[in-house]
C-alpha cells in the first residue's frame, strides 16, 4: 500500500484515492460543497456549476475535476459563494419556482441550497417561461416549470433503469426536458413509478402523484437542518477518517 494521498480544501487536509474527484473526496471526508447536478451514484455531469471551487488559482467544478496530490482547493470563500448565490438565483428566475404551492417544498435541494447560501431574493429579472406540465402518467407528474436541467433523470433512466425515458431537447435558454414518446407525453413512455428516474429529481419537476404535502411544515428535511448537515439520502458517501 502506498501512502495516502491528500490535497488541501480550505486549509483542511483531505485524503483521496486515485481517480476520485474533489467532490467525491470531500464528501467522503464529510465536507459539503454545494451542488445540484451531482449525485454520487451517477457519472459526473458538471452542468449546474454550483460546486465551482478555486483549484490552485483557477476556477473549476469540484464534481468533474480530479483530486491531485498537494492540490490547493478553496471552496468556502466569499467570492465563490457570491458566484454560487448568483447561479442559484439564475436557476430560480429561469424557471417558475413557486415554492408555496410546490409539493417538494421543504425537501427540495434547489431550495435547500438557496437556504444554505442565504438567498433572500432571486434578484435577477424573472423569465416567467411558458412550460408544459405533463400529468398524463398515472403515477408521476412532470412539472417542467421546476426543471433545472440537471439531467439526473436522464442519467438515471439511461444508466440505471435502462429505459431512456428522458432527454434534453432544444438549446440555450430554450433547452427543455423531453420524453421518449412520439406524442411527447410521459404516459406514452415506459416510465414506472418505481424507476430510479422517477425519484431522483432534486426539485419538484418529477414527483409521485398523491404523495404531496405529507409531512407538516417544520418537520421536512430542510426545515431545520442545513443541506450541509442534512444531505439527502444516499448522498453522504462513505465517511473516512
Amino acid at each position: 500500500m502506498s501512502q495516502t494521498k491528500t490535497f488541501s480544501l480550505d486549509g483542511r487536509t483531505i485524503p483521496f484515492e486515485e481517480g476520485e474527484t474533489i467532490m467525491e473526496a470531500a464528501a467522503a471526508a464529510g465536507v459539503y460543497i454545494p451542488h445540484l447536478c451531482h449525485h454520487p451514484e451517477f457519472k459526473p455531469h458538471g452542468s449546474c456549476k454550483l460546486c465551482t471551487v478555486n483549484i490552485g488559482g483557477r476556477l473549476g467544478a469540484a464534481c468533474t475535476n480530479r483530486a491531485a496530490e498537494g492540490m490547493q482547493v478553496e471552496s468556502e470563500t466569499e467570492a465563490i459563494n457570491a458566484d454560487r448565490l448568483a447561479l442559484t438565483q439564475m436557476l430560480f428566475v429561469e424557471g417558475n419556482h413557486i415554492c408555496p404551492s410546490c409539493e417538494k417544498s421543504g425537501n427540495c435541494q434547489l431550495q435547500a441550497v438557496a437556504y444554505h447560501l442565504g438567498m433572500l431574493t432571486p434578484h435577477f429579472t424573472h423569465f416567467y417561461p411558458s412550460r408544459d406540465v405533463d400529468a398524463s402518467h398515472p403515477d408521476v407528474l412532470l412539472e417542467r416549470n421546476r426543471c433545472i436541467l440537471c439531467e439526473l433523470c436522464v442519467r438515471a433512466s439511461r444508466d440505471v433503469d435502462g429505459k431512456n425515458v428522458f432527454g434534453i431537447g432544444g438549446r440555450g435558454i430554450k433547452a427543455r426536458l423531453i420524453v421518449n414518446s412520439a406524442s411527447g407525453r410521459l404516459a406514452d413512455t415506459d416510465l414506472s413509478v418505481t424507476d430510479r428516474a422517477a425519484e431522483v429529481c432534486p426539485t419538484g419537476a418529477i414527483i409521485r402523484k398523491r404523495h404531496g404535502f405529507t409531512v407538516p411544515i417544520g418537520h421536512r428535511l430542510y426545515d431545520r437542518r442545513d443541506i450541509a448537515e442534512a444531505p439527502v439520502a444516499g448522498m453522504e458517501g462513505p465517511k473516512r477518517g
Binding site: 417558475n96 413557486i98 408555496p100 432571486p122
Partner: peptide, 18 residues
C-alpha cells in the same frame, strides 16, 4: 422592504403569468 414570497418572486398570483 419586500415582505413575503409574492413581493419577492410574484408568488402564487404569478401562476397566471402563463
Amino acid at each position: 422592504v419586500a415582505l413575503g414570497a409574492c413581493a419577492i418572486t410574484g408568488g402564487i398570483p404569478s401562476w397566471r403569468n402563463n
